[in-house]
Nucleic acid binder design. Structure first.
Lengths: 139, 139
DNA sequence: CTAGGGATTCCAGTTACTGTAAGGTCAAGG
DNA sequence: CCTTGACCTTACAGTAACTGGAATCCCTAG
């Protein structure tokens, strides 16, 4: 199979597949004309990578997961550990985003959003302590 | 004020402040010895930037917000628009992360996480259709 | 023989910094 | 006067994971 077919099958752009070869995630053979040839195992690997990436695993995590996948005697605990770490990071990101969301929503609701220049959003950013409280701004 | 003092006041690393000068977000004067000198307006700007960045605005958004802040006749609607767009992006990111989180949590719960090699997480990544359903994997 | 649709490589750009190296400046202390 | 240490400077490279573009080659069909 040539790279275009694999791209269609795996859903990954050809460019990305070449990149994955660059960083040694896949090692397709070459035809005499220089074209990459992907066998079923290569395509399977790339599909695996596409799924893992869609679940937010980093490339390095993917490398680890792929190695675990190919090691038929791995302990499932190792896979679960990688996943658990990733879950923690996702949770942290969600929490960060939710905090930003809450603040921005509040400010946006307080902002008239009309032709007038008065704007609570800019006031908060500029450090104006609109509620005269003593809390620090979120860092 | 020298860069170190500003770093302490604004909470931004000196390196970041230099970077912000590079991309023309601030334009501190220079002393004869080449050191940057920051006046109160510069420090205020940097603090503004630190807050906006902490709320997840991109650098380009920050540039826009700063310009709006300094344009005393801006319409608050413009600020609200930038904020609204950012809120939408945050919501999209949260939704993505929550979807990943749900899938990973499910898989993680199904995985024994012991010494045995059987692992639903790897099975899902490898495309094994464990539930014999016909739904596509999330892309 | 030419046109098209692939394929190849290589280089640059993206975002927002961060790290490192090599070196200039300044104030205090011996 | 010299050193030491804290501070400042620049410039270049690296990060994550691609993406875009240019120049060129290959293959097939008409």
């Amino acid at each position: 199979m040539n790279i275009g077919d694999v791209a269609r099958q795996s859903g990954l752009p050809a460019k990305t597949i070449r990149y994955y070869e660059d960083i040694s995630l896949v090692k397709p053979k070459r035809e005499t004309n220089g074209y990459r040839v992907f066998n079923d195992a290569d395509v399977h690997k790339l599909t695996f990578l596409a799924r893992a990436r869609a679940l937010g695993f980093t490339i390095e995590d993917c490398r680890t997961l792929l190695a675990l996948y190919e090691d038929k005697s791995r302990a499932s605990a190792e896979v679960k550990k990688v996943t658990g770490k990733h879950l923690n990071e996702i949770e942290a990101k969600i929490a960060d985003l939710q905090a930003m969301h809450a603040t921005l929503t509040r400010l946006s609701e307080e902002c008239a959003g009309d032709h007038r220049p008065d704007c609570p959003i800019l006031e908060e950013l500029s450090g104006k302590d609109r509620h005269s409280n003593t809390h620090d701004a979120k860092q």
